[in-house]
């Protein structure tokens, strides 16, 4: 089986072949690594990588898996999987038009109302996460179509807080 995995910004290709019930041969750039594995629990694997034993901890976190080995964490995703956050939105082709928090947060202040005109970079909403306030700004010039949240509401990444209709004729070009 072939895998294309994304670690940080790098895409790494692997070919994996199962060897018995507890073994796998992994090749990357022509180099083959033999790995024996024992699943200790849902979150814990005991691996022997080319003779070197490692306790590896792993959990799915959203679209990626968080892996911890000897205190260092790795965030790995399938490079070919569609990004679940932009599913159906074709984010790459259209300028982003919505405002979403970078992490779970609480809405502190809403600075715009539906119908307001905004310029790209204007502050539109302030959210707070663990006592740190973050101001989110308009991703584009346009008109506020809808404010989907109220002050004090808990919000998650991917949730669209404010919809902005992009100006059809950008003035600054």
């Amino acid at each position: 089986m072939d895998y294309r995995l994304k670690l940080d910004e790098n895409v790494i290709s692997f070919h994996a072949e199962k060897k018995g019930d507890h073994g796998i041969a992994l090749s990357r750039d022509g180099r083959i690594v033999d790995i024996e594995y024992t699943a200790i629990s849902e979150y814990h694997q005991y691996l022997v990588v080319d003779g070197c034993p490692l306790n590896v901890f792993i959990a799915r976190d959203g679209n990626t898996k968080m892996v911890v080995i000897r205190g260092i964490s790795y965030y790995i995703g399938d490079a070919d999987a569609p990004d679940s956050r932009s599913r159906g939105k074709k984010r790459d082709q259209v300028m982003p038009q919505e405002v979403t928090p970078p992490m779970p947060a609480v809405v502190v202040r809403i600075l715009v109302s539906p119908g307001d005109s905004v310029k790209q970079g204007d502050s539109v909403i302030v959210v707070s996460s663990m006592k740190m306030e973050t101001t989110l700004s308009a991703p584009t010039d346009g008109k506020v179509r809808a404010v989907n949240v109220t002050e004090g509401e808990k919000v998650m990444p991917g949730q669209i807080l404010i919809d902005i209709d992009r100006d059809t004729e950008p003035q600054n070009q």
Partner: peptide, 25 residues
């Protein structure tokens, strides 16, 4: 930035996790 020296092992863990049906005790 951390020195991600066990990147290959981490990727292996990802693949093994995909291959083994989730252990649901």
């Amino acid at each position: 930035k951390p020195d991600r020296c066990y990147a290959d092992a981490a990727c292996a863990a990802f693949i093994i996790d995909e291959l083994t049906p989730a252990v649901k005790p």
